[in-house]
């Protein structure tokens, strides 16, 4: 986001449309946040109800701490998220470099595939991977589990990383790389000492996006996970299906707060990098 201001504010005719617009915007923000706040509110309810307030308690958070299956799901999500992010970030950065710095036959095909992977409905990606894994891995004796989830998550996040890093590379001054090479740096040194530091905010943004997409993914994971490899979203889904209790609200609240902290932390980190 650039910090430039929107220019002179429209003055004169019609204060009424401005007021209406302001009111409308306030209502939209209320619409965006009210359901989340209701959800958080009932995580502190003293009874099992998620609809009638009976008093304050933190017992659902205590229940959350006791539930081993939730911990296991959280660790699975972290394991998958970190591994998939690392792989997707490296591959995505390589791809972005090839697409911005080189011309080659099949570039259009590569571009099309990368964009197709970002717009393909998740359900289609999910079932096609399930069919693929069942046809190839199961005969080899490999079960659906963490490994298949990681493979799937890299497949659907790598294109997003590529697009984000590529946007950063496109805005970069190529003459810096040429200067480094003229001064005798080999391609690897040029990449590590010049290109990478310059595109680092883009790489970080891509990694952050990949991690969030992976950590939140339900649909694709639903199809490629096996017994005992439940991730956090899968666990939450089965809890909702099993019956609504404030434990789900407590868990959701924790996930929401962590997400918000990650966004703020991430954006501050990126801004600081950008400025230095």
């Amino acid at each position: 986001m650039s910090a430039k201001t929107g220019g002179p504010v429209y003055k004169g005719v019609g204060r009424i449309p401005d007021r209406a617009l302001l009111l409308f915007s306030v209502l939209i923000y209320a619409f965006l946040y009210a359901p989340i706040l209701v959800l958080m509110f009932f995580s502190f309810n003293s009874s099992r109800s998620t609809q009638s307030w009976t008093g304050f308690s933190t017992e659902w958070y205590a229940a959350l701490l006791r539930d081993e299956t939730i911990h296991q799901a959280f660790f699975n999500s972290m394991k998958v998220g970190v591994t998939a992010t690392l792989i997707a970030t490296v591959i995505g950065t390589f791809t972005a470099l090839a697409l911005t710095r080189h011309d080659f036959r099949g570039k259009l095909a590569a571009d099309t595939t990368i964009y197709a992977a970002t717009v393909m409905p998740e359900i289609v990606v999910g079932v096609s991977l399930l069919a693929f894994f069942v046809a190839t891995l199961i005969p080899l004796g490999i079960e659906l589990g963490i490994v298949t989830i990681v493979i799937a998550h890299v497949a659907f996040t790598v294109s997003f990383v590529t697009i984000v890093v590529r946007a950063r590379l496109a805005g970069m001054d190529e003459s810096l790389e040429e200067a480094a090479q003229d001064l005798g740096a080999n391609p690897t040194t040029t990449f590590l000492r010049v290109t990478l530091p310059l595109i680092f905010p883009g790489v970080m943004a891509g990694a952050l996006l990949a991690f969030t997409l992976s950590f939140d993914d339900f649909v694709i994971t639903f199809f490629v996970s096996g017994v005992g490899s439940s991730t956090l979203p899968l666990k939450i889904y089965s809890m909702i299906k099993f019956g609504v209790t404030p434990v789900i609200n407590a868990l959701s609240t924790v996930v929401l707060v962590a997400t918000i902290a990650l966004i703020f932390g991430g954006s501050r980190l990126l801004v600081r990098r950008e400025n230095s």
Binding site: P35, V38, F42, T50, Q51, D216, I236, S252, V255, L256
Partner: peptide, 15 residues
């Protein structure tokens, strides 16, 4: 909300 889990946001409407 853009970065927040869709599943959790859908659940809020169940409640």
């Amino acid at each position: 909300p853009f970065w927040t889990s869709l599943l959790i946001r859908a659940y809020s409407w169940v409640v």
